[in-house]
Nucleic acid binder design. Structure first.
Length: 345
RNA sequence: UGGGAUGUAGCCAAGUCGGUAAGGCACCAGACUUUGACUCUGGCAUUCCGCAGGUUCGAGUCCUGCCAUCCCAA
Protein backbone atom coordinates (compact mmCIF):
# COMPACT_ATOMS: atom_id res chain seq x y z
CA UNK A 1 0.00 0.00 0.00
CA UNK A 2 1.74 3.16 -1.16
CA UNK A 3 1.99 6.06 1.24
CA UNK A 4 -0.33 8.91 0.49
CA UNK A 5 1.17 12.36 0.10
CA UNK A 6 -0.55 15.67 -0.33
CA UNK A 7 1.43 18.10 -2.53
CA UNK A 8 0.98 21.84 -2.25
CA UNK A 9 0.88 22.99 -5.86
CA UNK A 10 1.20 26.65 -6.69
CA UNK A 11 1.03 26.08 -10.41
CA UNK A 12 4.71 26.91 -10.71
CA UNK A 13 7.65 24.86 -11.86
CA UNK A 14 9.03 23.92 -8.45
CA UNK A 15 5.96 22.38 -6.90
CA UNK A 16 5.09 20.69 -10.19
CA UNK A 17 8.47 18.99 -10.33
CA UNK A 18 8.13 18.05 -6.67
CA UNK A 19 4.84 16.33 -7.50
CA UNK A 20 6.35 14.54 -10.48
CA UNK A 21 9.23 13.34 -8.36
CA UNK A 22 6.85 11.89 -5.79
CA UNK A 23 4.86 10.14 -8.48
CA UNK A 24 8.04 8.62 -9.86
CA UNK A 25 8.92 7.37 -6.39
CA UNK A 26 5.69 5.47 -6.11
CA UNK A 27 3.71 7.66 -3.75
CA UNK A 28 -0.02 8.00 -3.99
CA UNK A 29 -0.17 11.69 -4.77
CA UNK A 30 -2.91 14.22 -4.37
CA UNK A 31 -2.47 17.83 -5.45
CA UNK A 32 -3.85 20.74 -3.51
CA UNK A 33 -3.78 24.34 -4.61
CA UNK A 34 -4.56 26.95 -2.02
CA UNK A 35 -6.60 29.96 -2.94
CA UNK A 36 -5.05 32.66 -0.81
CA UNK A 37 -5.47 36.07 -2.33
CA UNK A 38 -6.62 37.85 -5.44
CA UNK A 39 -7.12 36.20 -8.77
CA UNK A 40 -5.58 32.74 -8.64
CA UNK A 41 -7.50 31.15 -11.52
CA UNK A 42 -4.45 30.98 -13.75
CA UNK A 43 -2.35 29.27 -11.07
CA UNK A 44 -5.14 26.89 -10.21
CA UNK A 45 -5.62 25.98 -13.85
CA UNK A 46 -1.90 25.37 -14.29
CA UNK A 47 -1.73 23.15 -11.21
CA UNK A 48 -4.77 21.22 -12.40
CA UNK A 49 -3.16 20.66 -15.79
CA UNK A 50 -0.02 19.31 -14.19
CA UNK A 51 -2.03 16.98 -11.95
CA UNK A 52 -3.99 15.77 -14.91
CA UNK A 53 -0.80 15.32 -16.91
CA UNK A 54 0.75 13.28 -14.12
CA UNK A 55 -2.44 11.39 -13.46
CA UNK A 56 -3.45 12.24 -9.92
CA UNK A 57 -6.39 14.08 -8.38
CA UNK A 58 -6.27 17.82 -7.74
CA UNK A 59 -8.36 19.91 -5.45
CA UNK A 60 -8.59 23.58 -4.52
CA UNK A 61 -8.58 24.70 -0.94
CA UNK A 62 -9.93 28.12 -0.18
CA UNK A 63 -7.89 29.59 2.66
CA UNK A 64 -8.48 33.24 1.89
CA UNK A 65 -9.97 34.16 5.26
CA UNK A 66 -7.13 32.52 7.14
CA UNK A 67 -4.53 34.05 4.85
CA UNK A 68 -5.89 37.51 5.36
CA UNK A 69 -6.23 37.11 9.10
CA UNK A 70 -2.95 35.41 9.77
CA UNK A 71 -0.64 36.78 7.11
CA UNK A 72 -1.87 39.96 5.49
CA UNK A 73 -3.30 41.76 8.50
CA UNK A 74 -0.25 41.06 10.68
CA UNK A 75 1.95 42.11 7.77
CA UNK A 76 0.32 45.52 7.62
CA UNK A 77 0.28 45.78 11.38
CA UNK A 78 3.99 45.05 11.59
CA UNK A 79 4.84 47.83 9.17
CA UNK A 80 2.67 50.28 11.07
CA UNK A 81 4.50 49.24 14.21
CA UNK A 82 7.83 50.14 12.70
CA UNK A 83 8.88 46.56 11.98
CA UNK A 84 9.85 44.87 8.73
CA UNK A 85 7.87 41.64 8.56
CA UNK A 86 8.66 38.55 6.54
CA UNK A 87 5.26 37.34 5.36
CA UNK A 88 6.71 34.18 3.81
CA UNK A 89 7.89 32.96 7.18
CA UNK A 90 4.46 33.54 8.67
CA UNK A 91 2.66 32.01 5.71
CA UNK A 92 4.71 28.85 5.94
CA UNK A 93 3.99 28.50 9.61
CA UNK A 94 0.31 29.42 9.62
CA UNK A 95 -0.91 28.46 6.20
CA UNK A 96 1.22 25.96 4.29
CA UNK A 97 2.37 23.98 7.28
CA UNK A 98 -0.55 25.07 9.42
CA UNK A 99 -3.99 25.06 7.85
CA UNK A 100 -2.93 23.08 4.81
CA UNK A 101 -1.06 20.54 6.91
CA UNK A 102 -4.11 20.04 9.10
CA UNK A 103 -6.25 19.62 6.03
CA UNK A 104 -3.87 17.05 4.56
CA UNK A 105 -3.87 15.04 7.77
CA UNK A 106 -7.65 15.14 7.91
CA UNK A 107 -7.78 13.79 4.38
CA UNK A 108 -5.70 10.85 5.46
CA UNK A 109 -2.40 11.89 3.90
CA UNK A 110 0.71 10.45 5.49
CA UNK A 111 2.81 13.35 4.30
CA UNK A 112 2.58 16.91 3.14
CA UNK A 113 5.01 17.94 0.41
CA UNK A 114 6.06 21.31 -0.99
CA UNK A 115 8.53 22.63 -3.54
CA UNK A 116 10.85 24.19 -0.98
CA UNK A 117 14.57 23.94 -1.56
CA UNK A 118 15.36 22.46 1.85
CA UNK A 119 15.83 19.02 3.34
CA UNK A 120 14.57 17.08 6.31
CA UNK A 121 17.21 15.06 8.10
CA UNK A 122 17.02 12.61 10.94
CA UNK A 123 19.32 13.76 13.71
CA UNK A 124 19.53 12.04 17.08
CA UNK A 125 16.04 10.66 16.73
CA UNK A 126 14.45 13.93 15.61
CA UNK A 127 13.59 15.21 12.19
CA UNK A 128 15.24 18.54 11.54
CA UNK A 129 15.08 20.99 8.67
CA UNK A 130 18.39 21.29 6.88
CA UNK A 131 19.73 23.50 4.17
CA UNK A 132 19.06 22.59 0.58
CA UNK A 133 22.01 20.92 -1.07
CA UNK A 134 22.53 23.89 -3.35
CA UNK A 135 23.08 26.96 -1.22
CA UNK A 136 22.13 29.46 -3.89
CA UNK A 137 18.51 28.48 -3.57
CA UNK A 138 18.34 27.29 0.01
CA UNK A 139 14.97 28.02 1.64
CA UNK A 140 15.42 26.36 5.01
CA UNK A 141 15.31 29.81 6.58
CA UNK A 142 11.57 30.16 6.11
CA UNK A 143 10.89 26.78 7.75
CA UNK A 144 12.79 27.22 10.99
CA UNK A 145 9.71 27.23 13.18
CA UNK A 146 8.02 24.02 12.02
CA UNK A 147 6.99 21.92 15.02
CA UNK A 148 8.39 18.40 15.40
CA UNK A 149 5.24 16.57 14.37
CA UNK A 150 5.15 18.52 11.13
CA UNK A 151 8.85 18.01 10.43
CA UNK A 152 8.27 14.29 10.77
CA UNK A 153 5.56 14.30 8.15
CA UNK A 154 6.80 16.48 5.34
CA UNK A 155 8.62 15.61 2.16
CA UNK A 156 10.79 18.13 0.36
CA UNK A 157 11.79 16.45 -2.89
CA UNK A 158 13.71 19.46 -4.21
CA UNK A 159 16.12 19.62 -1.31
CA UNK A 160 18.93 17.89 -3.14
CA UNK A 161 18.41 19.64 -6.45
CA UNK A 162 19.46 22.96 -7.91
CA UNK A 163 17.12 25.28 -9.73
CA UNK A 164 18.64 24.48 -13.14
CA UNK A 165 18.22 20.78 -12.43
CA UNK A 166 14.58 21.32 -11.54
CA UNK A 167 13.98 23.26 -14.73
CA UNK A 168 15.70 20.56 -16.73
CA UNK A 169 13.50 17.88 -15.18
CA UNK A 170 10.43 19.95 -15.96
CA UNK A 171 11.47 20.12 -19.60
CA UNK A 172 12.46 16.46 -19.82
CA UNK A 173 9.12 15.41 -18.46
CA UNK A 174 7.39 17.99 -20.63
CA UNK A 175 5.41 19.36 -17.72
CA UNK A 176 2.79 21.84 -18.94
CA UNK A 177 4.33 24.59 -16.79
CA UNK A 178 7.97 23.97 -17.70
CA UNK A 179 8.36 27.40 -19.25
CA UNK A 180 6.76 29.44 -16.50
CA UNK A 181 8.98 32.15 -15.07
CA UNK A 182 9.95 32.07 -11.41
CA UNK A 183 7.62 33.79 -9.04
CA UNK A 184 8.98 36.69 -7.11
CA UNK A 185 8.03 39.51 -4.77
CA UNK A 186 5.33 39.16 -2.17
CA UNK A 187 2.62 36.89 -3.56
CA UNK A 188 -0.24 39.12 -2.45
CA UNK A 189 1.41 42.27 -3.82
CA UNK A 190 1.86 41.50 -7.52
CA UNK A 191 3.16 44.94 -8.45
CA UNK A 192 5.78 44.81 -5.73
CA UNK A 193 4.82 48.13 -4.21
CA UNK A 194 4.43 47.08 -0.61
CA UNK A 195 4.29 50.63 0.70
CA UNK A 196 1.34 51.42 -1.51
CA UNK A 197 -0.29 48.19 -0.36
CA UNK A 198 0.15 49.06 3.31
CA UNK A 199 -1.26 52.52 2.71
CA UNK A 200 -4.31 51.15 0.93
CA UNK A 201 -4.97 48.46 3.52
CA UNK A 202 -4.57 50.87 6.40
CA UNK A 203 -6.29 53.76 4.64
CA UNK A 204 -3.22 55.92 5.07
CA UNK A 205 -1.71 58.50 2.83
CA UNK A 206 1.83 59.72 2.54
CA UNK A 207 2.88 61.26 5.84
CA UNK A 208 6.13 63.20 5.53
CA UNK A 209 8.34 63.35 8.57
CA UNK A 210 11.80 64.33 9.66
CA UNK A 211 14.93 62.51 8.64
CA UNK A 212 17.40 62.56 11.54
CA UNK A 213 21.09 61.91 11.95
CA UNK A 214 22.46 60.01 14.91
CA UNK A 215 22.82 63.25 16.86
CA UNK A 216 19.12 63.96 16.41
CA UNK A 217 19.55 66.81 13.96
CA UNK A 218 17.06 67.12 11.12
CA UNK A 219 18.87 66.39 7.87
CA UNK A 220 15.99 65.88 5.47
CA UNK A 221 12.47 64.60 4.97
CA UNK A 222 10.93 61.19 4.44
CA UNK A 223 7.55 60.00 3.14
CA UNK A 224 6.27 58.05 6.14
CA UNK A 225 8.19 55.74 8.43
CA UNK A 226 6.55 52.56 7.13
CA UNK A 227 8.19 53.09 3.75
CA UNK A 228 11.67 52.54 5.23
CA UNK A 229 13.53 49.58 6.60
CA UNK A 230 16.91 49.25 8.26
CA UNK A 231 19.76 49.44 5.77
CA UNK A 232 17.63 51.08 3.09
CA UNK A 233 19.37 53.62 0.91
CA UNK A 234 16.68 55.03 -1.34
CA UNK A 235 13.74 57.29 -0.84
CA UNK A 236 15.14 60.37 0.84
CA UNK A 237 14.51 63.75 -0.68
CA UNK A 238 17.49 65.23 -2.42
CA UNK A 239 20.36 63.15 -1.23
CA UNK A 240 23.59 63.99 0.52
CA UNK A 241 26.64 65.56 -1.14
CA UNK A 242 29.12 63.39 0.75
CA UNK A 243 27.67 60.04 -0.13
CA UNK A 244 24.57 57.96 0.48
CA UNK A 245 22.78 57.52 3.78
CA UNK A 246 21.19 54.33 5.05
CA UNK A 247 18.33 53.82 7.47
CA UNK A 248 19.53 53.04 10.98
CA UNK A 249 16.13 52.95 12.66
CA UNK A 250 12.58 54.23 12.47
CA UNK A 251 10.33 55.65 15.16
CA UNK A 252 6.63 55.07 14.47
CA UNK A 253 5.50 57.20 17.41
CA UNK A 254 7.35 60.30 16.22
CA UNK A 255 7.28 59.37 12.53
CA UNK A 256 11.02 59.90 12.24
CA UNK A 257 13.66 57.97 10.37
CA UNK A 258 17.28 58.01 11.55
CA UNK A 259 19.99 57.64 8.94
CA UNK A 260 23.74 57.28 8.92
CA UNK A 261 26.62 56.27 6.73
CA UNK A 262 27.15 52.67 5.71
CA UNK A 263 29.61 51.89 8.47
CA UNK A 264 27.00 52.89 11.03
CA UNK A 265 24.49 50.24 9.98
CA UNK A 266 26.39 47.29 11.42
CA UNK A 267 25.42 45.58 14.64
CA UNK A 268 27.32 43.13 16.75
CA UNK A 269 24.40 41.74 18.69
CA UNK A 270 20.66 41.26 18.57
CA UNK A 271 17.77 40.09 20.68
CA UNK A 272 15.09 37.67 19.51
CA UNK A 273 11.64 36.89 20.87
CA UNK A 274 9.36 34.05 19.96
CA UNK A 275 12.32 31.77 20.36
CA UNK A 276 11.89 28.18 19.24
CA UNK A 277 14.34 25.32 19.35
CA UNK A 278 14.04 22.39 16.99
CA UNK A 279 16.25 20.27 19.20
CA UNK A 280 17.91 20.51 22.55
CA UNK A 281 21.02 19.00 21.10
CA UNK A 282 22.94 22.11 20.19
CA UNK A 283 25.70 24.22 21.60
CA UNK A 284 25.86 27.99 21.95
CA UNK A 285 28.21 28.42 19.01
CA UNK A 286 25.79 28.64 16.10
CA UNK A 287 25.58 30.32 12.72
CA UNK A 288 22.85 32.93 12.70
CA UNK A 289 21.11 34.04 9.55
CA UNK A 290 19.38 37.40 9.92
CA UNK A 291 17.46 37.51 6.66
CA UNK A 292 16.38 35.24 3.88
CA UNK A 293 19.20 36.22 1.58
CA UNK A 294 21.95 36.67 4.17
CA UNK A 295 24.78 34.29 4.75
CA UNK A 296 24.65 32.63 8.16
CA UNK A 297 27.31 34.20 10.37
CA UNK A 298 29.27 32.78 13.28
CA UNK A 299 27.78 33.76 16.60
CA UNK A 300 27.21 32.88 20.22
CA UNK A 301 23.56 32.31 21.13
CA UNK A 302 22.38 32.57 24.71
CA UNK A 303 18.84 31.93 25.83
CA UNK A 304 17.78 34.73 28.15
CA UNK A 305 14.18 33.78 28.95
CA UNK A 306 11.42 31.34 28.09
CA UNK A 307 11.10 32.68 24.57
CA UNK A 308 14.02 35.06 24.17
CA UNK A 309 17.67 34.86 23.30
CA UNK A 310 20.69 37.07 22.79
CA UNK A 311 22.97 36.66 19.80
CA UNK A 312 26.49 38.03 19.67
CA UNK A 313 28.22 37.88 16.30
CA UNK A 314 31.92 37.29 15.83
CA UNK A 315 31.81 40.02 13.18
CA UNK A 316 29.21 42.81 13.06
CA UNK A 317 26.31 42.21 10.69
CA UNK A 318 24.86 44.74 8.30
CA UNK A 319 21.30 45.95 8.76
CA UNK A 320 20.00 43.76 11.54
CA UNK A 321 16.30 44.46 11.18
CA UNK A 322 13.56 44.16 13.81
CA UNK A 323 10.72 42.03 12.47
CA UNK A 324 12.93 39.74 10.43
CA UNK A 325 13.70 36.24 11.61
CA UNK A 326 17.04 35.17 13.02
CA UNK A 327 17.59 31.50 12.29
CA UNK A 328 20.19 29.38 14.04
CA UNK A 329 22.15 26.75 12.17
CA UNK A 330 24.42 24.04 13.44
CA UNK A 331 26.21 23.20 10.25
CA UNK A 332 23.45 22.46 7.76
CA UNK A 333 20.79 21.81 10.37
CA UNK A 334 18.26 24.37 11.48
CA UNK A 335 18.22 24.15 15.25
CA UNK A 336 16.15 27.17 16.16
CA UNK A 337 15.29 30.78 15.61
CA UNK A 338 13.11 33.70 16.56
CA UNK A 339 12.02 37.16 15.57
CA UNK A 340 14.49 40.00 15.89
CA UNK A 341 13.19 42.64 18.25
CA UNK A 342 16.30 44.69 18.76
CA UNK A 343 19.79 45.21 17.41
CA UNK A 344 22.65 46.84 19.24
CA UNK A 345 26.20 47.81 18.57
C1' U B 1 27.35 101.34 -6.17
C1' G B 2 34.50 100.78 -0.65
C1' G B 3 36.90 95.91 -0.88
C1' G B 4 36.84 90.53 -1.80
C1' A B 5 34.55 85.95 -3.70
C1' U B 6 31.30 82.99 -6.41
C1' G B 7 27.65 81.72 -10.27
C1' U B 8 28.56 74.25 -14.49
C1' A B 9 22.25 69.11 -14.48
C1' G B 10 17.40 68.60 -8.47
C1' C B 11 21.96 68.87 -4.95
C1' C B 12 27.54 68.72 -4.20
C1' A B 13 31.30 69.34 -7.67
C1' A B 14 35.94 68.61 -11.46
C1' G B 15 37.10 71.28 -15.59
C1' U B 16 44.94 72.12 -16.79
C1' C B 17 48.50 76.09 -21.91
C1' G B 18 40.97 77.85 -25.25
C1' G B 19 39.62 72.17 -28.78
C1' U B 20 34.65 70.19 -28.37
C1' A B 21 31.21 69.24 -20.41
C1' A B 22 34.95 64.09 -14.75
C1' G B 23 32.90 62.17 -10.44
C1' G B 24 29.48 61.69 -6.21
C1' C B 25 24.30 62.14 -4.16
C1' A B 26 19.33 61.82 -5.84
C1' C B 27 16.28 59.88 -9.68
C1' C B 28 14.78 56.22 -13.70
C1' A B 29 15.21 51.30 -16.06
C1' G B 30 16.96 46.37 -15.92
C1' A B 31 19.35 42.25 -13.25
C1' C B 32 19.39 39.65 -8.65
C1' U B 33 15.33 37.83 -5.16
C1' U B 34 9.13 32.91 -2.68
C1' U B 35 9.83 39.19 2.38
C1' G B 36 11.33 44.27 2.88
C1' A B 37 16.21 45.95 1.89
C1' C B 38 21.20 45.80 0.18
C1' U B 39 24.07 44.95 -4.29
C1' C B 40 25.15 44.97 -9.57
C1' U B 41 24.52 46.87 -14.68
C1' G B 42 22.72 50.66 -17.74
C1' G B 43 20.48 55.67 -18.36
C1' C B 44 20.61 60.63 -16.79
C1' A B 45 23.71 68.78 -19.05
C1' U B 46 22.66 66.31 -28.13
C1' U B 47 22.75 74.94 -30.00
C1' C B 48 25.02 73.35 -23.23
C1' C B 49 28.24 75.72 -18.50
C1' G B 50 24.08 83.17 -14.60
C1' C B 51 22.71 86.72 -18.99
C1' A B 52 24.26 89.60 -23.37
C1' G B 53 27.96 90.72 -26.65
C1' G B 54 33.18 90.20 -28.49
C1' U B 55 38.03 87.69 -29.97
C1' U B 56 39.00 82.83 -32.43
C1' C B 57 38.83 77.69 -37.31
C1' G B 58 37.04 76.53 -32.34
C1' A B 59 35.45 79.20 -25.52
C1' G B 60 32.77 76.64 -19.58
C1' U B 61 37.97 77.98 -20.25
C1' C B 62 40.23 84.79 -23.02
C1' C B 63 37.91 90.17 -23.32
C1' U B 64 33.66 93.76 -22.24
C1' G B 65 29.13 94.89 -20.01
C1' C B 66 25.08 93.44 -17.10
C1' C B 67 22.50 90.42 -13.38
C1' A B 68 22.44 87.39 -8.92
C1' U B 69 24.35 85.52 -4.41
C1' C B 70 27.85 85.49 -0.37
C1' C B 71 31.69 87.72 2.80
C1' C B 72 34.35 91.98 4.85
C1' A B 73 34.00 97.09 5.67
C1' A B 74 29.75 100.07 7.10
Amino acid sequence: MPKKVCVAMSGGVDSSVAAALLVSRGFSVEGVTMRLWGDADRDIADAARVADFLGFPHIVLDLRPAFRAQVVTPFVGAYLGGLTPNPCVVCNREIKFGALYTYARERGCDFLSTGHYARVTLFDGAYLIARGRYPRKDQSYVLYHLPPEVRARILLPLGTLSKPQVRRLAREWALPVAARPDSQDICFIPDGDYADFVEREAALSVRPGDLLDTAGAVVGRHQGFWRYTVGQRRGFSGGFPDGPRFVLSTDPARNTVTVGKNDEVFSERLTVRGLVWATDRHGSRLDTKIRYSARAAASAVTQTGPDSAEVVFDAPQRAVTPGQSAVFYDGDRVVGGGTIVRASV
